[in-house]
């Protein structure tokens, strides 16, 4: 372990274990996300990165250990209660609703606290969506769907974002655009926990990298330490 956060943690995960039915997916994950930072969870497929986000949101219900957000324990809380405490989640599969238009998808999440973007602000911020606002959600390209999935959670006013592989399956030019949008969010003071397999993308946006293997944290690296430890990280990622 090489990097200690200097800012106060917004999220503290300690000895987190999680199960899908009888199958254990997380084996004592521990890490912190300091306020205002962008932290990535990196690791190979099936390492437990997405499960970590789903456990934080309470979507994976069978959990043990501790997840504290602003000092408050989240384990035992329902997913909607966790969201109402200021955490927004953008899933890997994007979950754009096929039966709703782009505008309806965008307007779906309720405003939970002050400081969220209005629909008009979001359409200005994500101009691709503006032109497609009356199309059905699933008629969008992969990149546009990803933009929509990120845009709509900004409506709620939550300042802590869980983003699950936003670059997955997208063309390099679109990945770059998504990266720029994420950096803008960071500049605006959002705290972000990002699951990524694309190391280049993670490198572009993160303050800190948490390396996950077999449902455990095996390394924590500050952004400036990544290059020096690239060989080890690539071994973890199997690339």
């Amino acid at each position: 372990m090489s990097s200690e956060p200097t800012r106060a943690p917004l999220l503290q995960v300690e000895n987190l274990n999680a199960w899908y039915a009888e199958s254990q997916a997380l084996h004592g994950m521990s890490f912190e996300v300091p306020e205002g930072e962008l932290v990535t969870l990196i690791g190979r497929n099936g390492a437990g990165k997405s499960t970590t986000l789903r456990s934080i949101m309470g979507i994976v219900r069978k959990r043990k250990g501790s997840i504290r957000f602003k000092g408050e324990e989240l384990i035992g809380r329902q997913t909607y209660e966790i969201a109402r405490r200021g955490i927004a989640y953008c899933p890997e599969e994007r979950a754009i609703f096929a039966s709703l238009s782009v505008r309806e998808n965008l307007g779906l999440p309720p405003v939970l606290s002050a400081g969220g973007s209005t629909d008009e602000e979001l359409l200005e911020q994500f101009p691709n969506l503006k032109a497609r606002q009356n199309s059905m959600g699933t008629m969008l390209s992969g990149g546009e769907q990803q933009m929509l999935a990120i845009a709509r959670i900004l409506r709620t006013g939550s300042r802590f974002l869980l983003l699950d592989e936003p670059s997955e399956g997208l063309a390099p030019v679109v990945v770059k655009e998504i990266g720029q949008q994420i950096l803008r969010l960071k500049e605006r003071g959002y705290t972000i926990l990002l699951v990524e397999q694309n190391l280049k993308f993670a490198q572009m946006v993160a303050d800190r990298h948490v390396v996950v293997e077999h449902g455990q944290v095996v390394d924590v690296l500050a952004a400036d330490q990544l290059q020096a430890n690239m060989g080890r990280v690539k071994t973890y990622l199997g690339v």
């Binding site: 979507i59 329902q78 997913t79 909607y80 969201a83 927004a88 999440p109 709620t156």
Partner: peptide, 11 residues
């Protein structure tokens, strides 16, 4: 699950 993650009391 996703609707609930938006803060809507799905139950």
């Amino acid at each position: 699950e996703i609707v609930e993650s938006f803060g809507i009391n799905v139950p």
